[in-house]
Design a protein around this nucleic acid. Structure first.
Length: 222
DNA sequence: GACCAGGCACATC
DNA sequence: GATGTGCATGGT
């Protein structure tokens, strides 16, 4: 017999996990690379970010002390492929300044402490908004905070979990109250949402074959 | 050639 | 406090 199950975020997580398997995110080797990538990916495709991260690695710049020391325009030249490179050079240097002041250039040590206080501090850095702060805290600092990005928004909107006008805090609260406050769960769920978003949730046509294809859809969501 | 991509800050009302 | 706009390259 068929039993109806309630469509919850918990069920969505299980469904995506079963369908997609482990994602092993964030796609970076070190906490420094995570934090740099989090800034570079702002309003930019991940492929461009990979190019720029590789260029930074080649230039020995995956080190916040080096980022702190290099000139803004020289850094901008290195990260040019990500677009908005002058803006991002400024932002990376602001982050590097914070990491150097706080922990001598070690992002691991800079991210030690209490989550809400760290988040508050990160948000005071020019160029670090809620999403970038949460990505750094979760993926580089292993703090349990949920990252709300464009894909997260899109998938939740399409399946009528949120309205068109839901803001960052409200969406984040949905996840953080519905799920166990766990780094592993938040990490994996966000990664799965990005995967599903990329594969199936950009255009209406791509719903076919999506693990959530049979779920309720909001027909007004693009 | 338009449009979008894992945002954010700043100006203006 | 809500809304609009600049940032800028690379892929589709």
């Amino acid at each position: 017999m068929v039993t109806s199950r309630r469509y919850t975020l918990g069920l969505m997580f299980e469904t995506l996990q079963r369908a997609c398997g482990p994602q092993r995110w964030w796609p970076a080797d070190t906490p420094t690379e995570v934090a740099v990538g989090a800034v570079l990916t702002q309003n930019t495709s991940w492929k461009s970010v990979e190019t720029a991260v590789a260029a930074m690695k080649a230039a020995g710049l995956l080190d916040f002390r080096r980022v702190d020391a290099i000139s803004e325009s020289d850094l901008a030249d290195v990260i040019r492929p990500t677009g908005t490179y002058r803006v991002k050079a400024k932002r990376l240097k602001a982050l590097a300044r914070w990491v150097c002041r706080r922990a001598g250039g070690s992002i691991e040590r800079a991210l030690e402490g209490e989550l809400s206080e760290l988040r508050r501090q990160l948000l005071t850095i020019r160029g670090i908004g809620p999403e970038t702060a949460d990505a750094i805290l979760l993926y580089a600092g292993r703090h349990p905070t949920f990252v709300v990005d464009a894909y997260t928004r899109r998938v939740l909107r399409r399946h009528a979990f949120i309205g068109a006008d839901a803001d960052y805090k409200a969406i984040q609260a949905r996840f953080e109250t519905a799920l166990p406050r766990s780094v592993e769960v938040f990490n994996e769920f966000h990664a799965l949402l990005v995967e599903i978003g990329k594969r199936h949730c950009r255009t209406r046509a791509r719903c076919e074959g999506c693990p959530l294809e049979s779920w309720p859809h909001d027909s007004t969501a693009a």
